[in-house]
Write a protein that binds this DNA or RNA. Structure first.
Lengths: 207, 207
DNA sequence: GTCTATATGCGGATAGAC
DNA sequence: GTCTATCCGCATATAGAC
């Protein structure tokens, strides 16, 4: 409080920060790390390093690794729905295509789509599974109720999304220049916006 | 060899077996376990328990957990391609649909498609990644070269496959009766053969 | 608010008996 | 061919200082 002793300013390597800001920082780092390695593959230490804090601090702030992952999921879902709603508010023409472009653009949020993808194939987990199903169904409900898609249209959209997620998870863009087939596949899979994927690919190849 | 001492017959809880048979048994168990938990989430002990052998034996036989996973991947890929080739040999009409039916039928091989799905989003791994990409491209090459699909047709097929994998990983069939939306989604996503998925869902809910 | 130190448990892998 | 016993490292979580 008022008694700030004479010397211990800047004691810590990383300066203090408001809890909320640090929280957001860690969630971003966690999104990236979980996206790369999945829930089991990622360690809280990797997250901590990526966020520039100590491992115990990460655990302290979120309680458990599991709760951290759940927060990452929630945040990712919120981001997706918010983005889609913004697209929707700009008109209802050619929605399928505009959603697609917006979806690919979300790849710029490192690990966001992949974290969710990891959660999706973790449906057997007693705590991650139910939330993953709920989240997936939220997106489906959005497409049907708010965007006005028919079941078939919604389905088509999700199919494309899941293949995109898979190709990103595969790092298929790494083969873009070396494999004729990979090249063709990527061109066919991404109506346009291939540039975004390739750019991201190079970035994470460096990291 | 010839000196079988008087008493120690049936010393072990599980009888001896030819190496090859035991191998196949363990690979099946591993496919199941990896399918449920993914590479990192699964433990060699779970595999061992599922196969009815000891944990060190699993490691002994395959060298490392990683090598075991790679063998599971190879075996799964081989199964898929073999199945598709069999379908192909029965005629070339309505291939997209017949492949789709065959693909859904593969769900009966517990964990086979999900193990691969897990490998697909593990593309960043230095040893699993390359093989996963290779495997995926093998399937793509099959669709283009042997089945004669156009890039767009192949793409459409893969999109459907990835959504199916995702819904299976999500255990979405668990919501079939409780959620209106899930019901609709599953009906739209599976042209037919919904029954297979629901049947499998019940089975693994018990296990 | 953030760290260091550390307890604890679990999982992969090894050694060696039978 | 298969097991038991066990080592060792790593990752999560806790305690407590600053």
């Amino acid at each position: 409080m008022s008694s700030m002793s004479t010397h211990d300013l800047e004691h810590h390597p990383v300066s203090r920060m408001k809890s909320e800001d640090r929280r957001e920082l860690i969630l971003q780092a966690a999104t990236d790390v979980f996206g790369q390695f999945g829930y089991y593959g990622a360690t809280t230490d990797q997250v901590a390093k990526a966020a520039g804090v100590s491992q115990p601090y990460v655990v302290r702030m979120f309680g458990t690794k599991e709760r951290l992952f759940l927060e990452v999921m929630d945040r990712a879902l919120l981001f997706i729905l918010t983005t889609f709603r913004a697209v929707l508010s700009e008109g209802r023409d050619d929605l399928g295509h505009r959603f697609g472009v917006a979806y690919v653009d979300m790849l710029k949020q490192r690990g966001l789509l992949l974290s969710l993808m990891h959660s999706f194939i973790q449906g057997g987990d007693p705590v991650i599974g139910p939330r993953a199903r709920e989240g997936f169904l939220e997106v489906y409900a959005f497409l049907r109720d708010e965007a006005g898609f028919t079941p078939d249209e919604a389905n088509r959209f999700l199919e494309g999304g899941m293949l995109l997620n898979t190709l990103v998870g595969l790092r298929m863009s790494e083969e873009f220049e070396t494999s004729e087939r990979a090249n063709e596949l990527l061109c066919a899979a991404l109506p346009q916006k291939l540039d975004v994927l390739l750019e991201l690919g190079k970035q994470q190849a460096r990291a």
